[in-house]
Write a protein that binds this DNA or RNA. Structure first.
Length: 564
RNA sequence: CGGGACGUGGCGCAGCUUGGUAGCGCGCAUCGUUCGGGACGAUGAGGUCGCCGGUUCGAAUCCGGCCGUCCCGACCA
């Protein structure tokens, strides 16, 4: 490819409002352009990177027995109704009608559709199966952002496994785990695997592949010992608190006190870690009290995961007042009955605590949780804090932002049972198929590569996914000898199978160098009159900036040795 | 959905308060001089000022409505 005829329009100015470095660089370097919120056009350079990422994915998934499919993006409503997810998916699913008025959806995932094909599996002898596709997914995100990191239309590699028993599912899950690591590492990323919430997918277990980045929307908890979890599911040990000896419960006035902090600052109040925080939630419409230590925050996802509820919403102040007789800020669970009380495990065994009296401007002190409160369930509900200790080894935990580039799920029999996907096992009994599903967001992965591999000058593509291996930068293109040498070199590289772009533009050297660095081509061969006189060209490595002079006639072999 | 901001040549922006039908930088075209780290000069092309309506002799500017985009939050496989 000749740069002068490639559509690689680099920009000098940053796009407005670009907060993620990858977004800024992908726009400036001519890889993507926005069409509307959450929709991006991929330009030729991005298509080359995408093709490489998809090729790596295919190689690794094929290597573990995958067979590639292509399923429709347009789905009939009834299959989603059958699985029960027509309602569950809510507004995130794009819905439309065809000319006959039939309800359709744009596919946001393909468990249902792949399962319709799995209905044709009749015998355990047909299993295991590993089916996958690389296809466009549509999700009407409430808030697309960070360029291509969170969009409404994107390419996903999704695979689905079908096994006769849990042991088989475990094998396929483990194979995917290894394949995913290979995929991300081959793309130049160094992902962390974390335990994760399965969310709307359901199922028994899931692992996310995370790439550290300040632009990431997820938060992950990690420890030197290897413990790693999404903040949504992470657990920890929080510093213990010494409680006083048991005493009689006592109501006392706290005029104007409405917050944990206000009570901590109040003269006869209590420090946050000796208060009980009382939250009121509507869980599938049912009112429940959620208790936490005063200095702890609720992780709503844990509440969702524990209850399995479709809807978990904080109750409105009106509803709270009606049921408890006080406003938020004066609430407590002492003496409450008729409501489910979920208490965070960090409150177990605590006494001498202060909590709201369910009467505005009054609190209770000397509360012994187990003596004075009817707790229905003890659950881990709190959000891990950076100061907490690791549950595995006791060392301090880290919390960092990360990008979720892949997620693998053990679905078990959930979809198979609902949709009736069964096989006859070796004993002739009908058995529900055990399913797994496994996803990689392709464009997000590309952005994650850029997030973790760039510098002040631009993108630094790993050679495995770079749009081109080499850029031949011609200095003084109008100098005949130089031009001839550069074109000869270009032809030789092409003939040798090197992916090369020839910067034959009549631009000044600085412009060409800057563009080559912005676009992020791993190797630059600089061909100029000065070197040509001596029969040499310069080889510059993008990642290190190191330049070496090499004989022109050895260039092809030198470069070939650097490539995978 | 709540809060905030913005929409003016391809890109980044000024102009709006104090109405008189547009300007800067980059980019683009032509010519010349340059050219191993984002050159300079000259000339030139390119704009329904997001859309609709209102006020006014006159609206990018004032008023109303709508649409779009971004940021924070909520939400989110």
């Amino acid at each position: 490819m000749r740069w002068s005829h490639a559509f690689v329009p680099t920009l000098r100015d940053d796009p407005a409002e670009a907060v993620a470095p990858s977004h800024r660089l992908l726009v400036r370097a001519g890889f993507i352009r926005q069409l509307m919120s959450g929709s991006y056009s991929l330009l030729p350079a991005a298509m080359r990177v995408r093709a490489k990422v998809m090729q790596i994915i295919r190689e690794e998934i094929n290597a573990i027995g995958g067979q590639e499919f292509l399923l429709p993006a347009l789905h009939p409503a009834e299959i989603w109704r059958e699985s029960g997810r027509w309602d569950v998916m809510g507004e995130e699913m794009f819905r439309l009608h065809d000319r006959k008025g039939a309800e359709l959806a744009l596919g946001m995932t393909h468990e249902e559709i792949f399962t319709t094909l799995a209905l044709e599996l009749r015998s355990y002898r047909d299993l295991p199966q590993l089916w996958y596709q690389i296809q466009t997914k549509f999700r009407d995100e409430p808030r697309p952002k960070s360029g291509v990191l969170r969009v409404r239309e994107f390419t996903m590699k999704d695979s689905y496994t079908f096994d006769v028993d849990d042991a088989g599912l475990d094998v396929q899950f483990e194979r995917h785990r290894v394949a995913y690591l290979n995929i991300f590492r081959r793309c130049g990323m160094d992902p962390v695997m974390v335990e994760a919430s399965s969310g709307a997918m359901g199922g028994s277990g899931s692992v996310e592949f995370m790439v550290f980045s300040d632009s990431g929307e997820d938060e992950i908890v990690t420890c030197e010992c290897g413990y790693a979890a999404n903040l949504e599911t992470a657990t920890s040990v929080s510093a213990p608190v010494d409680d006083p000896v048991a005493a009689t419960i006592e109501k006392f006035p706290t005029p104007g006190v409405r917050t944990i902090k206000a009570l901590a600052d109040f003269d006869s109040g209590a420090p946050a870690d000796r208060q009980i925080k009382t939250l009121v939630y509507e869980i599938d419409g049912e009112l429940s009290l959620v208790l936490l230590r005063g200095d702890h925050d609720l992780m709503e996802q844990k509440l969702r995961d524990h209850t399995g509820a479709a809807s978990v919403e904080p109750a409105s102040p009106e509803v709270i007042y009606e049921s408890l007789g006080a406003a938020p800020g004066s609430l407590g669970a002492v003496g409450v009955d008729g409501l489910t009380v979920l208490a965070d495990k960090a409150l177990a065994g605590r006494r001498g605590l202060t909590t709201g009296a369910n009467e505005d401007d009054f609190h209770l002190r000397n509360v012994d949780v187990e003596r004075d409160i009817t707790v229905d369930e003890w659950v881990d509900l709190r959000t891990v804090k950076p100061s907490d200790a690791c549950i595995e080894c006791g060392r301090p935990l880290r919390i960092d932002h990360a990008i979720e580039v892949g997620h693998i799920f053990k679905l078990g029999t959930k979809y198979a049972e609902i949709l009736g996907a069964t096989v006859l096992d070796a004993d002739g009994n009908e058995a529900a198929i055990r399913m797994g599903s496994y996803g990689i967001g392709v464009e997000r992965a590309i952005a994650a590569v850029v997030e973790s591999s760039h510098d002040e000058s631009g993108i630094v593509w790993p050679v495995t996914v770079a749009p081109y291996h080499v850029v031949v930068t011609v200095l003084r293109i109008q100098d005949e000898a130089t031009r001839a040498a550069a074109e000869g070199l270009y032809e030789d590289l092409v003939a040798a199978g090197v992916e090369v772009i020839l910067d034959d533009r009549d631009e000044r050297p600085g412009v060409k160098f800057a563009d080559a660095e912005l676009v992020g081509v791993p190797f630059r061969l600089t061909v100029g009159p000065r070197g040509i006189e001596n029969g040499t060209v310069e080889l510059t490595v993008r990642a290190t900036g190191v330049t070496t002079e090499i004989p022109l006639r050895e260039t092809v072999s030198t470069v070939s040795d650097l490539l995978p």
